[in-house]
Write a protein that binds this DNA or RNA. Structure first.
Lengths: 202, 202
DNA sequence: CGTCGCTTTGACCATTTGGTCAAACCAATT
DNA sequence: AATTGGTTTGACCAAATGGTCAAAGCGACG
């Protein structure tokens, strides 16, 4: 593995290729279902060569998880107290749905990890994520108490947004198998907007 | 493996124990994350002994998937054209949520399988499940056209029910990490009922 | 109580898989 | 062109894992 210097051109290229291939494979098969060999050949490298850039399979996986976590939570962070509450929520839902469409691999990566019991990120979930959610739930609660949104349990509201939007990424195969021809994401934005509009309009 | 006769008392007991332990482990770790040894010792058997009852790891997994699929779809099948449409939908949602609470392992088993691309059940999804969903979607569509339910895309309505209810089982860890103390399933029934009531009341 | 057929197991095997290592290979700088 | 340091690989290893098998154990029934 290279020294502690500025990464060379080759290092940048290969680390990026590895992480991209690894995301493909981890997101499709979970941590244990992915093999180092598969990731390596998907990245166009030999296994020892891959292990020259990342010391272990786990280190690749952790790099991905940690590297994407912030991005993944950005939409929720952007939920602000300014402006119309319903618009804020709808914008959040829309961002979340766009992320599921644009980054389904990331969605599945987290889904796998959480369904395994989230062994590598429980502490983050119960500290950072929990704090963020509590904060935004309080904001929503405030809107509801002010009569600016119809009242519902704010935490469960957030869960429902997660589940609904990520479902389109995580269960893509099922949706496509069931939906007659049409692109799952075609009608989804309208549907979720309608749903949250009717749920939350005071 | 035993001949083609009526199963003995011991066979019944052991097959049941194996399937139960296997459900524990497959649902927690997915197919590749589960080892035959783990399942065997969880069932209180040696590995060769387990393989005396099921020829392969895959056969255990398939037995579970197929054995639970019908049960898993029963709530949707029970959606009938009789009675008040909203009550029918709300009853479906309630049944589905109860199943997530009572059978989280089964929910996760299917979730894992589908997230892997559903290699073993794609055909069932695109035939049986699709037909069932189409049928019920048509029923819902009819209710909406008759003005007895507020109009939304019926397929996506069904997806939303799946995602919302199964989320409580599949992402249990995350929900518990985020929810301040309370039991996730305590407020869930009220929340989902409110959601679908507001969404669908004409 | 002996036999027959179901049940259980220790020992074993082949394959897969994560990871190591020394040697070869390049690329750029002097 | 020689040197230096990053890059690549073939060969190899140990552990894990799915599965086999012959032999031993056991239960019920005549």
């Amino acid at each position: 593995m290279p020294k502690d210097r500025a990464p060379t051109r080759i290092q940048k290229k290969n680390r990026k290729a590895i992480l991209d291939s690894a995301l493909d494979i981890f997101s499709a098969r979970g941590f244990r279902g992915a093999t180092v060999d598969d990731i390596a050949s998907a990245a166009g490298l030999s296994k020892p060569n891959l292990l020259y850039y990342f010391p272990t399979k786990e280190s690749i996986y952790l790099t991905l998880l940690e590297g994407q976590l912030d991005t993944w939570l950005d939409p929720l962070r952007a939920l602000e107290s300014d402006g119309d509450p319903l618009d804020q929520i709808l914008a959040y839902v829309r961002r979340k749905l766009e992320m599921s469409q644009a980054y389904p691999r990331e969605s599945r990566l987290f889904a796998h990890e959480i369904m395994q019991g989230a062994p590598r990120i429980t502490d983050i979930l119960s500290t950072d994520l929990r704090q963020l959610v509590d904060e935004k739930a309080a904001l929503i609660q405030g809107w509801m108490e002010a009569g600016r949104l119809a009242p519902v349990h704010p935490h469960h509201l957030i869960f429902s947004i997660w589940s609904l939007t990520q479902h389109y990424a995580d269960f893509d195969v099922q949706i496509r198998a069931v939906l007659p021809g049409e692109d799952p994401f075609a009608a989804a934005p309208d549907f979720v907007e309608t749903l949250y509009r009717r749920l939350l309009t005071p």
